[in-house]
Design a protein around this nucleic acid. Structure first.
Lengths: 239, 239
DNA sequence: CGGGATTTGTCAGGGTTTCGTCAACTCGCA
DNA sequence: TGCGAGTTGACGAAACCCTGACAAATCCCG
């Protein structure tokens, strides 16, 4: 749908992001250092740049500054290892649209990417879509299974029409499962998506949160019908 | 709905304004220096001009003066970096309709734009539309939730029919939450919309203002029913 | 079919994060 | 100088998350 340039030297992270953004339907390129990133941005004119700050050859700040000086208006989402407030301020000052500190969950990044693209999309097309804040790209506004309704914009869940309180991690986990539409998700993938790339969390963590979800959402938590265990692999969501 | 010309050399700012005004349903063009701005104003005949004062080639004062000399009565909203009273007076002398100093919140600008357009529309047609104060472009004139009524035009709020005094920031924050119609708004987005583009404001600022809103608007501020916290993300308004 | 090995479910304690609150401070303005 | 609005950091309370130990379930294979 949109063209996204990722400027990131960590190969694992770069590939992971590319994969997931491509699954979302975007065209993606990856540059491994600041110089290459700048060149690709100039030549390829992406709709969004995901920019790591710590980069070989030319750091993210310089890339961003140069881009802006040359008049590129492309929205930029900054990734930073340190959570330094100074970095954040500096980044936003230089004209970045958003800022994310590692470790971050994949879902959080995807959400921000979609947000930035939605905001920026209208600049190009003269007749923007109806101002009713619609015209979403990928995800629907709500999901439902059984008597459960998940409202993504509100970050709320109801069951039998009554609100269910989910903790942040629980909600993110639920979304990660729903997103896969029935496919099995390994614990590793869940940890990556929900907990974040650099997270060293292990052991019973995922299971505990799944249990909590079942307790709150399943009619009979002991015999789940929607959040299913796939032995030796992970979990799977079913309508 | 209306044609708006933005004359602003800062690309990031111009881009952001264009996006948001287009979301509000307006047709927008951006000129990056005074000369280009003047040309576009002559040729395109916008319904409103948003005019930066500090501009390359031809500063805002000169643009405005020339426009007026040539007989253009288009409403002009001046943006200025410095808050110099002299500038303001001079701008209004030259026939500007309104004046805003950076950094300003997005909402404040949007509100003034709508105000100017409404006023301008009436001036154009001698027999103004029915005095019922209608014919708006996007937002409704008032919002209500619980026993609270928000009058956008007057920037006033009542609760149980009795007026509630809100500070400017508090009112803007409330509007920003209401505008999203129930969706979660992150602290970052709130800072962007209410506090302004280049604002590096951080920490407890948003929370403090939310607390104040709850104190003034909620029946039981400790158990809010309308201005809700969404942990790890931000806040959400509910009818 | 049964025993052992592996995997998952459950639970509660404590460390951590996040939010609400408050008071001090700055700033612009009269 | 006094005032009100806005901002900030400190602090405490609450929510949340992780972990490790143990129980239950499942699988493997004899």
């Amino acid at each position: 749908m949109s063209r996204i340039l990722i400027v990131e030297d960590n190969r694992t992270l770069g590939y992971g992001l590319r994969n997931n953004l491509e699954i979302e339907g975007h065209e993606v390129e990856v540059a491994r250092d600041g110089k290459a990133g700048l060149d690709r941005a100039r030549a390829w004119r992406p709709d969004l740049v995901v920019l790591d700050l710590m980069l070989p050859k030319l750091d993210g700040f310089q890339v961003l500054k140069t881009l802006r000086q040359e008049g590129h208006e492309v929205p930029v989402l900054i990734l930073s290892a340190r959570g330094e407030e100074a970095d954040k301020v500096r980044g936003l000052r230089l004209g970045a649209e958003d800022y994310l500190t590692k470790p971050f969950g994949l879902l959080e990044l995807l959400a921000r990417v979609e947000g930035l693209l939605r905001r920026g999309a209208r600049a190009a097309s003269k007749s923007g879509p109806a101002p009713g804040e619609n015209g979403r790209s990928g995800a629907p506004e709500t999901d439902r299974f059984g008597s459960v309704v998940v409202d993504h914009a509100r970050r709320t869940v109801t069951r039998h029409g009554r609100p269910v309180e989910l903790a942040p991690r629980e909600f993110d986990l639920l979304v990660a499962l729903i997103r896969r539409r029935g496919a099995v998700v390994s614990r590793t993938d869940l940890l990556r998506e929900v907990w974040g790339y650099a997270s060293g969390a292990v052991s019973r963590t995922v299971d505990t949160h799944v249990a909590e979800l079942r307790r709150k959402l399943e009619e009979d938590p002991a015999a789940p019908r929607h959040i299913l265990t796939v032995r030796k692999v992970g979990y799977r969501h079913q309508d």
